[in-house]
Computed example of a mutant assay.
Amino acid sequence: MSLESVRAFFVQNAPDIDVIITEKSSATVPLAAEAHGVEPAQIAKTICLCVGEQVMLVVAAGTARLDNRKFKDMFGAKPRMLGAEEVVELTSHPVGGVCPFGLPAPLPVFCDASLRQFDEVVPAAGAINAAVRLSPERLAELTDAKWVDVCQAAPAEAMG
């Protein structure tokens, strides 16, 4: 089970971090921001992408959008979004609960620079009503992520 694999990940790697379960769905950035009382940009969304044969996870601020030019410059090709079934197959997490924790097999994880504007971010935790709170640096450390800059600059009004 996805939520259980995420809980097991935190028990093993970061027992000080609690998985937060909300009554309301947090499957979208606006719902998650409301459920956790944070700005939408503070939600750390995980995007499952394919570049050629390489599958990867990009974690970015909730209001950030991928910049195809920056992405292509960094990875040498345009990204392809994976379908919901492929995402579940590769991550074990449902769309709306996708995160870089508790994966059935390791995937490369990239944290976008858009996360660095916050002291704390709220990524999903393997279910559409589960999340964790941690610093962007801790997120990158726990997932062995590399920092990249592949998103468009957020408009000022989205910054909160």
Rank of each mutant, 00 (worst) to 15 (best):
8 A>R: 08
131 A>T: 12
58 V>K: 00
93 H>C: 07
62 G>V: 11
140 A>G: 13
43 I>Q: 01
114 S>N: 03
45 K>R: 15
35 A>I: 01
29 V>Q: 09
66 L>H: 07
150 V>P: 03
56 M>L: 13
118 F>L: 09
66 L>G: 06
150 V>K: 02
143 T>A: 12
39 E>C: 03
21 I>W: 14
104 P>N: 04
86 E>Q: 13
42 Q>C: 06
144 D>H: 15
106 P>S: 08
75 F>Y: 15
48 C>V: 14
33 A>T: 05
137 E>G: 01
47 I>Q: 09
36 H>M: 02
68 N>Y: 10
55 V>P: 12
58 V>E: 04
158 A>P: 03
65 R>A: 15
15 P>R: 05
137 E>W: 00
68 N>K: 11
87 V>F: 07
39 E>M: 02
128 I>E: 14
66 L>S: 06
114 S>W: 03
3 L>H: 02
154 A>F: 11
63 T>V: 14
54 Q>W: 14
10 F>L: 01
155 P>C: 12
48 C>K: 03
60 A>E: 02
57 L>V: 03
95 V>C: 10
26 S>C: 06
106 P>H: 06
70 K>S: 11
36 H>Y: 06
3 L>I: 04
110 F>H: 13
81 M>H: 14
134 L>Q: 03
96 G>K: 00
97 G>F: 08
145 A>F: 14
51 V>A: 11
132 V>D: 04
101 F>V: 05
28 T>H: 06
160 G>D: 10
108 P>S: 12
3 L>V: 06
25 S>P: 04
81 M>F: 14
51 V>R: 11
72 K>S: 14
24 K>M: 05
